[in-house]
Amino acid sequence: MGPVTVPSWASSDAARRSMQSNRSRDTAPELALRHHLHARRLRYRVAYPPIPSLRRTADIAFTRARVAVFVDGCFWHGCPEHYRAPTLNAEYWAPKVARNQARDTDTTAQLRAAGWTVLRYWEHEDPWTVADMVEAVVRGKADLRRTAQPDRISIRCPGG
């Protein structure tokens, strides 16, 4: 008996190859943000699972401060400013992006319930500005942890 062939979700072989080559980590916006954070002497983990049983990874995680940073792609996560629904294979893409958005919401809720601060940014946002906000939250939480009881820390973050 030969190999079982499963029909592809892609509209063509070229589209399938293109989609398979998309990175899930180390994207240009993520690398730019990491560069700016590292230059500020902030140290972090990359593609880190804050809750290992959840099977989802934060793009950047500050484990001591319990801050998870996500850099969401405009296409994949349905940016209200830049997302344009594809015309080819639209019956696949509309539910796919909706599932991604639902997973993002669920991930954020679960991480917050576990005591993490979640920061989400779009790939088009200026990496310097994002790095400023991330640094303020991470350093602010670190300062608060030295002076307050950790269970009393509550920080509201922009974009999160």
Rank of each mutant, 00 (worst) to 15 (best):
G2F: 08
T5M: 05
T5R: 13
T5F: 05
V6E: 08
S8H: 00
S11F: 05
D13F: 07
D13Q: 10
A14V: 05
A15G: 08
A15R: 09
R16K: 10
M19K: 12
Q20Y: 10
S21I: 02
T27N: 06
A28S: 10
P29Y: 01
L33H: 03
L33S: 14
L37H: 13
Y44L: 04
A47F: 04
S53P: 02
L54S: 08
R55M: 06
A58L: 04
D59E: 03
I60S: 04
A61K: 02
F62G: 01
R64M: 06
R66Q: 15
V69P: 09
G73E: 12
F75Q: 08
W76D: 14
W76Q: 10
G78R: 06
G78E: 12
H82T: 02
T87L: 14
A90K: 12
W93G: 05
A98H: 05
Q101L: 00
A102S: 12
D104V: 00
D106T: 09
A109K: 12
A113I: 05
G115K: 07
W116S: 03
W116R: 11
T117M: 02
R120C: 15
R120W: 11
Y121F: 15
H124Y: 14
T129S: 13
V130P: 12
V130A: 08
M133C: 13
M133A: 10
E135T: 11
V138K: 03
K141G: 02
A142T: 15
D143P: 00
R145A: 10
A148T: 05
Q149E: 13
Q149W: 12
S154N: 07
S154W: 06
R156W: 10
C157A: 14
C157W: 09
G160Q: 09
